[in-house]
Write a protein that binds this DNA or RNA. Structure first.
Lengths: 342, 342
DNA sequence: CTGAAAGCGCTAACAG
DNA sequence: CTGTTAGCGCTTTCAG
């Protein structure tokens, strides 16, 4: 296990001082001949500079930290892809941690990122980490909160989210245009039984949109699932509730992309046909949606990732709150659209 | 932008030396009363230790590096999930970089990981990076190559791969059991027109398996695609070739999970029905495979990720070469199985 | 049990 | 253009 060469070793074999080596490595003014000798020594010793040590001078590393609650959602994959591309274009690496959807892990991971002195932090965590991210932002580490907004953010603390109300309204409009009138909603919650504000906002938007068209969305028409295996029960409760209240359920909207597969197969397992028996509408575009004919409300996740990373790189001083519009990608899972019916 | 507290600040406000602070933080022998004062100072100053500085003593960081060529493949997502879980269980973070499937980026990213003094490195890169990973391994940074084996690895250099020949044979057996006899193969290559050895091995396995059953797999029955948009052309060439050679194509096997969606929709776009017109078999399990009835040859990607991370954590001194078996997940995309026909 | 002092590998003035 | 001299924030002997 050969010892690693240090800048001192390079300096010694090149017959110069460490300062000179540092200069040729980082582009200072050095005589061509000297530089050549140094490069030669670098090559011969296979010297690889220690980025860690460099960082302690810069005050922070060149890495962008990302804390994600759950990799399973198609939303996050594209988000990461967007972040990664911007990072690569800026000689940054991405340091990644997932929280397995547990609140206590969220604060541990954010803390770990802070200890690593990341150049900036992008998180999809809940309020529990706000204390630390605020402090980080105040301390000069730009932080970007994804899918949530924060009250009174300090300088350096930004947020990127979807216009969830608009997304909900979009769903309502589409469903009504497809002639549906009795809709059930599926939302997810984390292990601490907290449903994410984004999903409740979408539900609120849906409720507004429905109300504008004279349709109700009673509390009982909203079911919650924590894991994929809960989804079946949630769907059953939806079916039962609406049956009790008279009109049979004719549409289900899944408020999180993470549960799309589970919801879709739960429906299939119950012999329910899409869209004949029930219309199916879900969040987040995914690779097979077109093939399956599933209509989705898409977030521009890739773009959101890029923007997040750009905020980290560009470090605007004023807090930036970016809100993106959702797009309806209409396919066949909600049945025929009867436009101009209103 | 408040300055960050250093260990010196903590020492000063607690009225002790930095050595003592270091001791209470890292669990040395300190009087309870002193420790209490230190913790108090830590809390009051919101002191967050600098992991970077710590690492320069350890000689390396506590981060596991991962270099992936392409996030789009379902294989990699699960691999990362496995790595991430082991990392989390070992107080490690995961540093991630993707190469966008370009060889030059591969060496740049591996180099970057080396500069970051990662605790260990997990890569899916090609031979171009072997020089560096060998040196890293010799220098004491465990390196794990995924989906490829290396000749004569030094101590600390490991590999994790699939038994690609067996995977190919599995495909042959299944296809023949389903009564198919004229199969076409789709493989992918990177931007430098290199097809990955794993895929050519799978093809070889398929060829063997077919030959054992008296069926040929001519060179022309293997088509290559670089990007998703090439897939249509590749499929067309397969269709054309086999038509020329007499027997109409009755099966297509896609040797990479990355192109599954593209291949599947290319078939649909040409009005080809699965499995009636053509059997469809692909690599890597994915969320919608069951719903779509697509038969796949699955790699234990999650487990492979875990093992890779475990090799980094446990640093065995002898080179470890792990080869995993592929599993056939039979669904309906190859038609009816006529077992016992042989 | 605790402090002083010497570094880890590198950069950043400041002279020369 | 280049070497010397301080550090960066932290750990780690080695005395006391």
């Amino acid at each position: 296990m050969a010892k690693r060469a240090t800048i001192g070793d390079v300096a010694a074999t090149a017959g110069v001082s460490t300062a000179t080596v540092s200069r040729v490595l980082n582009g200072g003014t050095v005589a061509a001949a000297t530089a050549a000798r140094v490069w030669d020594a670098v090559a011969r010793l296979e010297y690889t500079p220690n980025a860690l040590t460099k960082s302690i001078f810069a005050g922070h590393s060149s890495t962008i930290g990302v804390v994600i609650d759950d990799l399973s959602s198609p939303f996050y994959l594209d988000l990461i892809r967007g972040i990664d591309e911007v990072a690569a274009a800026n000689d940054s690496l991405v340091m990644f941690a997932s929280t397995f959807r547990q609140a206590d892990r969220e604060v541990a991971q954010v803390r770990a990122m802070d200890e690593q002195r990341v150049r900036g932090l992008i998180v999809t965590t809940g309020e529990a980490t706000d204390g630390r991210t605020r402090r980080m932002a105040e301390g000069g580490t730009p932080c970007v909160i994804i899918a949530r907004t924060v009250e009174d953010p300090p300088s350096g603390m930004h947020s990127i989210s979807l216009d969830n109300l608009q997304a909900g309204r979009l769903a309502a409009a589409h469903l009504v245009e497809c002639g549906r009138s009795s809709v059930g909603v599926l939302i997810s919650q984390n292990r601490s039984s907290q449903s994410r504000p984004s999903q409740t906002e979408r539900t609120a938007g849906l409720r507004h949109g429905l109300a504008e068209r004279g349709l109700p969305l009673p509390e009982g028409a909203v079911a919650t699932a924590t894991t994929e295996s809960d989804v079946g029960d949630a769907i059953d409760s939806l079916l039962a509730h609406v049956r009790d209240s008279g009109k049979p359920l004719d549409a289900i909207v899944c408020m999180t992309g993470r549960l799309t597969v589970a919801a879709h197969s739960a429906l299939a397992a119950r012999g329910i046909t899409i869209p004949d028996d029930i219309a199916f509408l879900t969040m987040d575009e995914f690779a097979w949606a077109a093939t399956l004919g599933i209509t989705v409300i898409a977030q521009p996740s890739y773009l959101m990732g890029r923007r997040a990373a750009e905020l980290v790189v560009e470090r605007p001083t004023t807090p930036v709150q970016l809100v993106f519009e959702a797009t309806l990608l209409a396919r066949t899972s909600c049945g025929e659209q009867h436009t101009g019916l209103r």
